[in-house]
């Protein structure tokens, strides 16, 4: 079991996490827009996360906390 929590108000929707996720289970939200006007990243398949923290490693805004 692993998961990530994206701080939606800090995320700038740059998609570096989307690009780096080995499981391809992060996407920019289609429905949400944060206070800065960005579509924040979100986990699309909670069961598939392996907690590798690649997303967090590449996140320029330290918006991702990883649990495992």
């Amino acid at each position: 079991m692993a998961k990530i929590i994206v701080d939606e108000n800090v995320c700038k929707g740059c998609a570096l996490c989307v690009n780096t996720c080995p499981k391809k289970i992060i996407a920019l939200s289609k429905s949400k827009i944060n206070a800065k006007g960005y579509h924040p990243a979100e986990l699309t398949d909670e069961n598939a996360c392996i907690g590798c923290a690649f997303c967090a490693t590449m996140c320029p805004d330290t918006a991702i906390t990883v649990y495992k």
């Binding site: 929707g13 998609a15 320029p60 805004d61 330290t62």
Partner: peptide, 13 residues
Amino acid sequence: APLHYCPGCTHGI
């Protein structure tokens, strides 16, 4: 403090 850098700028990393 939220970083003022543009989206995807590697300064943050």
